[in-house]
Design a protein around this nucleic acid. Structure first.
Lengths: 115, 115
DNA sequence: CTTTTATGAAACCAAAAGGTTTCATATTTT
DNA sequence: AAAATATGAAACCTTTTGGTTTCATAAAAG
């Protein structure tokens, strides 16, 4: 089944799995040992991660190694980046607004001390 | 209720809502008119988006305007960026590997033509 | 060959998600 | 004041999620 990568990273356990195998592949049992939940539960998470392309599994003897496909995160990155300009614009606007407020306050304070 | 921003953007309808209000705030009814599902369903999505800080709602008369808080996406961006170096490294590795394969092939071809 | 080990997969379960319809309430409009 | 509009919220329903236990199977180790 094909899956949405946004759904893939929605679960904290799946993000933890991805992090665990981000530098080097691990077999399924080794991954599951680091978690409280059962191996079967982790197996399902790995299945989902595979279905959305964030992991590739390769068999070696009786073990199956999970390798992170971090390039797939570009899809998330691209989605976020389309909004960066917008949120920076807003922050700039806020900044100039606050600066104006500041200088207005200074003028006001000055008037007060001159009184 | 406090919510996870990763869960917030996991649903395609919620991403669509966020996109719709990314440039200008809209009241809840206007948002829901653009979707097939009921207003109540959209209302719930907006509630979730609010709970994870991706939207701020402000009342004006009987209407409630939803404004996107796109800076909140920085959280997603930060998470993705921690892996960018890793995935670039892998891509570099692949590239040099392919280059070596290429030059090996060239030498091989040359030998063939010289024969 | 027997026993471990690593995994796949089925059956089952509770809670969460995503939806609907319906009704109450507060603001406009007319 | 009456009607229309915008929203909040409850009650209810189905599907999906995330989890469990159990059993089968294949490879590796003794």
């Amino acid at each position: 089944m094909k899956r949405d990568v946004f759904r893939g990273i929605a679960d904290p356990t799946r993000r933890a799995i991805l992090h665990m195998i981000s530098t080097a592949p691990l077999n399924i049992n080794s991954v599951s040992e680091h978690f409280e939940v059962s191996r079967a539960a982790i197996y399902k998470h790995i299945k989902i991660l595979t279905e959305c392309g964030l992991i590739v599994v390769s068999q070696k003897g009786r073990e199956r190694y999970c390798e992170a496909q971090l390039q797939k995160l570009e899809e998330i990155s691209d989605w976020v980046e389309q909004y960066r300009e917008l949120w920076n614009k807003r922050l700039d606007f806020l900044e100039t607004y606050l600066q104006r407020l500041q200088s207005k306050k200074k003028r006001h304070d000055k008037r007060k001390t001159n009184r």
